[in-house]
Nucleic acid binder design. Structure first.
Length: 310
DNA sequence: AACACGGGGTT
DNA sequence: AACCCAGTGTT
């Protein structure tokens, strides 16, 4: 008769072993994970992957890297081209921040992507997650990486919760650190693999809606499953966000028109947006906000992507 | 801590 | 129609 499994929270080593072993077997072959991918390629991927699924990023990443294989190339590109290649990845201000990062890398880092999380964190559009992710995935530094997948896996396996809750709390940050493999043991190699392995488990197996617990390499350790997989509490469930009629939808429609149609008369462009229920006050407000964000430009009565009005 | 910020596939 | 996605910056 074997003893009950030890608490993974105080003894996470078996979880490290099971999960990293699974990763080596099951990981997807994504272009930014290949050995020959540059640090710039990793940074581009992380910017694109902020709130955008992998499947939609892959083709845009290839096109971006084909056109702008180094920070120097991206730094010199016309803004209108940057936004056009970004296409419908969403949150186009991310494209602006990525180009600004390229310019900072050229101006202040000799064209080389900085290697420490602290330096990366100073780049525009690079927050706590992206700084740690680039330091780890591009430069093998054992930073603690925490994204939405990792928060969910930690919540289930170690905390026994169905979902992690909406905001990243200090408790969750402490948990992520407490289960992180000791970087001293093998120069951080296990720690880096752990980051990507937990993320991959959250993406492929421990998904938000319908986790595949029967296929999970750490099911035997999972506090949530061992507790009977209780459903998420009302607190853990996210609140419904409507989409139709929001400024975000209107801004997106304006950007789509500017990308595909080129410069146009402002009144015509706003009138022809395929959004019948949205009044002109809102259309105009959104046009102004896009101009204020540097995503569009107006001269006289003409509007266009930035730099497209000669 | 709560919001704003895109867009499309899945349930 | 709601939910979800390799988050960041602002208030």
């Amino acid at each position: 008769m074997t003893a009950a499994a030890p608490d993974p929270l105080t003894a996470p080593e078996p979880v490290h072993t099971a999960l990293t072993s699974w990763y080596h077997r099951a990981a997807r072959d994504l272009p930014w994970r290949r050995r020959d991918c540059s640090a710039w390629g990793v940074l581009v991927s992380e910017a694109m992957l902020q709130q955008t699924p992998v499947s939609r990023v892959v083709p845009r990443w290839h096109e971006w890297m084909r056109r702008w294989p180094t920070p120097q190339h991206a730094a010199e590109a016309p803004v209108a081209e940057i936004l056009t290649v970004w296409d419908r990845l969403g949150y186009p201000r991310r494209a602006l921040r990525l180009q600004e990062s390229a310019q900072v890398i050229v101006d202040r880092h000799g064209g080389q992507v900085p290697q420490t999380a602290a330096e990366l964190r100073q780049l525009p559009g690079v927050g706590e997650y992206t700084a740690a992710a680039v330091a780890c995935f591009a430069f093998d530094q054992p930073e603690v990486v925490v994204d939405t997948n990792i928060r969910r896996v930690h919540a289930r396996v170690f905390a026994g919760d169905a979902l992690p809750g909406k905001t990243y709390t200090s408790d969750q940050r402490r948990l992520a650190h407490s289960v992180f493999p000791d970087p001293a043991v093998d120069d951080g190699e296990l720690a880096c693999t752990w980051n990507i392995a937990v993320m991959e488990l959250g993406a492929l197996v421990c998904t938000a809606r319908s986790p595949s617990c029967t296929a999970c390499p750490v099911a035997e350790f999972c506090a949530w499953r061992l507790a009977g997989s209780p459903p998420p509490t009302e607190q853990q469930r996210t609140r419904a966000q409507t989409w139709a009629g929001t400024d975000r939808q209107v801004r997106g429609a304006i950007m789509a028109a500017l990308r595909t149609g080129g410069p146009a008369a402002r009144s015509d462009l706003l009138a022809e947006l395929p959004l019948p229920a949205v009044d002109m006050v809102q259309r105009s407000r959104c046009m102004e906000s896009l101009i204020a964000d540097g995503l569009a430009e107006q001269r006289q009565d003409k509007v266009a992507l930035p730099g497209a009005l000669a």
